[in-house]
Design a protein around this nucleic acid. Structure first.
Length: 128
DNA sequence: ACAGTGACAACAT
DNA sequence: TATGTTGCCACTG
């Protein structure tokens, strides 16, 4: 398991580590992930990190990242402009029991993930 | 080292 | 409520 990247790991790697901890059937937001990693305003970087997963398509180490479980703060699938990917994200989520609205909206009160606690995050980013 | 870029978020109209 | 603008952060060339 590669859950705890070394301190030299980039922010992207930290993002992947956190997303891999999101339970099946649950979702979280870009902002929440960023905040867990100590970047309350780094939501955009989180989205960029997940986007970069495509560049590692062949690498299985990145293939197990459940990117579909990360949505925006409004509880919606945020890649609407890329209809193909949005549809796939919705399909993947429904496949694991998450109710996705016709407008690609999800009830965060029902499916939202609590997130990692202090110690879990420390193990990932290697800080305290 | 610098500017451009992007699966976000918050605020203003 | 809906649309537009501004601030953020980290990676790439």
């Amino acid at each position: 398991m590669a859950a705890a990247p070394p301190p030299s790991a980039t922010f992207f790697d930290h993002v992947y580590a956190v997303v891999r901890r999101v339970p099946r059937g649950r979702v979280t937001t870009y902002g929440a992930v960023a905040q867990m990693l100590g970047r309350p305003r780094g939501a955009r970087a989180v989205g960029y990190a997940l986007n970069a997963l495509k560049d590692h398509g062949d690498d299985s180490a990145y293939g197990d990242v459940p990117w579909q479980r990360v949505i925006n703060a409004q509880g919606r699938i945020s890649i609407v402009n890329r209809a193909f990917d949005a549809a796939e994200q919705a399909a993947r989520l429904r496949a694991e029991g998450v109710a996705v609205d016709d407008t690609l909206r999800i009830d965060l009160d029902r499916f939202g993930w609590d997130g990692l606690d202090w110690a879990e995050v420390a193990a990932i980013i290697g800080r305290r």
